[in-house]
Write a protein that binds this DNA or RNA. Structure first.
Lengths: 329, 329
DNA sequence: CTGTTAGCGCCTTCAC
DNA sequence: GTGAAGGCGCTAACAG
């Protein structure tokens, strides 16, 4: 910029003003400056601007990981909106580790991001690190997983209704002994889907419930499934997600139980696995990309209009996708 | 920082030195400063540092997208290494659009990233935007797709050998009329796999070749496949990727041709689809995460030791995974 | 309409 | 061992 000023024999301020289309500047100098700037490929130093304005123009994102199709889609949605609005996205993953999550929240805070979108880890039972953000009035949006301890907006799937709908369908197709394979205990999604499962049964006047708890370790989980299947009379299983449904189907196949004639299975999330596996897995689809976009829009709006009160959280509708692991109506 | 200095009755320089463990400072003041800093949750302003040192401490990444498992894994690998080395990763996706790719390269350059890892778009036939980077000596690593026009390091899969190995296997299991379904024409990977396919046939003394070209539009591609199958006598098809193999298998299923008895099929990339689909799809696995890690390591090394000459490009080995769409040996 | 000056937060040379 | 001063690139308040 100094070079530009020197070259044209004007002051730096003039150059700055010309570049920023300041009102009170002669058309002539403006043009001259802008042309020379283009010719010399001048680009302002982003750090000088950030230092001066004390704005980072960036948004932090914390996700569990991005290998699952669901999160990849959430990321896609967030990235596209954030990018279109001129923000830089800073991504970090915690892989279910609460300590990493805390570390990255602090890290992003130090980086002075303008706001954070987060999907907390299943290991988290303490949300103080988010409280700090709220106190410093750094806009915060929870995604996929709800956090009731913190006063922040959230964008989640309507897990409850999705679960109710799934159970309803199972009942309508004649199932009466419907079990639920739960998700990790700390997640709001686990809780909502479990509650929805119970509500669905209740509504239909079914008293029989049976629940298998989450188990991290795969081999052990398979044993639990096998034990569960032999211990419970079951004609349908509503699973926390498609990966669980997949493990279940493999075991059902091995033990010779026909799907859906003997047992119906419904997963959750509409991961590719549910579409590609044979039999194709019936599932509850979540609008992942939309969720990302919505979260990004809300966050950006909060950043731009911090004063606005009572920002509404979103609870996005699910869609029951009937494939081949459930009986037709 | 000014606050710290004031609070302790020393100068800012002293605080700065104490915090940076400068040699010539009394143990006492150092301790006092560091303790107060911790107590007040002091963290240096990153932009001031970046402005001063003119280093961004960030690395740009350009990918086609992150929904495909392969790219999600590449991202995972890159992110983990970059993050561990204290760099911030700035991600952008071009979705196969060459203009977006150009835009983001310039954008990242303006952001003064310390280096860039890129996987160029299938729409790219001009690499001038990368030339600019090289001229400004900004470290650059090509990933997955090779660019011979540019003098930069690259980390790719050994697509050629992977293809040869796949064809070899098909021949060993008795196939003689082996076709290849190609990838997008601009990609080095398409070219390498095609060349490997031809080499594999040549080595085995087979003269018969048949190739189906890439077609972006799905419905039209399906028609092309159908036409191809009726026009060519074929007992095996080596596909550019698993998604093509999937489309092919659906059509083979519909037309009643038995896999692998009538036709063997091999895909590429070991996407989840190949594992979950029934019949399980034989495929050539690429070390995606490793590729990301390797690229990140090379880039960081280049950033830290710019003088080093003749940095070696990597060509990572593939692994042939035999599942159910090929005959056993 | 344009130039001068100060300062964003930090480090680093130069004094002492 | 410590303080004062200057500057990284830029904008904005204040003068003219």
């Amino acid at each position: 910029m100094r070079d530009l000023a020197f070259e044209l024999g004007v002051s730096q301020s003039t150059v700055s003003r010309a570049l920023n289309n300041d009102q009170r500047i002669s058309e002539k100098t403006r043009k001259a400056v802008q042309e020379l700037a283009k010719k010399l490929d001048y680009a302002p130093n982003p750090f000088a601007l950030k230092l001066l304005k004390n704005e980072s123009n960036s948004i932090g994102l914390i996700l569990p990981e991005f290998k699952h199709h669901f999160f990849a889609n959430v990321l896609e949605g967030i990235h596209h909106v954030v990018s279109d609005n001129g923000f830089q996205l800073l991504i970090h993953t915690h892989h279910g580790d609460a300590e990493k999550e805390i570390k990255y929240v602090k890290f992003l805070n130090n980086l002075m991001v303008d706001g954070i979108i987060t999907c907390y880890s299943k290991g988290s039972d303490n949300f103080d690190h988010y409280k700090t953000l709220v106190e410093e009035s750094i806009p915060l949006v929870f995604i996929d997983r709800l956090c009731e301890d913190i006063d922040a907006t959230s964008v989640i799937t309507d897990d409850f209704s999705g679960a109710v709908e799934a159970v309803n369908y199972l009942v309508k197709t004649g199932c009466r002994h419907i079990a639920h394979f739960m998700g990790p205990e700390n997640l709001s999604t686990s809780f909502s889907r479990l509650t929805g499962y119970k509500e669905g049964l209740l509504k239909n006047g079914i008293r029989h419930t049976a629940v298998l708890e989450w188990e991290e370790e795969k081999e052990r989980y398979r044993e639990h499934i096998t034990q569960f299947l032999s211990a419970h009379k079951t004609d349908a299983i509503f699973c926390f997600n498609d990966y669980i449904a997949y493990e279940l189907l493999l075991i059902l196949e091995k033990t010779g139980r026909k799907v859906p004639d003997d047992v119906s299975v419904i997963g959750f999330s509409n991961e590719p696995i549910s579409e590609y596996f044979r039999p194709r897995i019936s599932t509850v689809a979540q609008p992942a990309t939309l969720m990302g976009e919505r979260a990004a829009h809300i966050l950006i709006d909060t950043i731009r209009h911090p004063a606005k009160e009572n920002r509404l959280s979103s609870c996005l509708p699910t869609e029951l996708i009937i494939r081949e692991t459930t009986k037709p109506l």
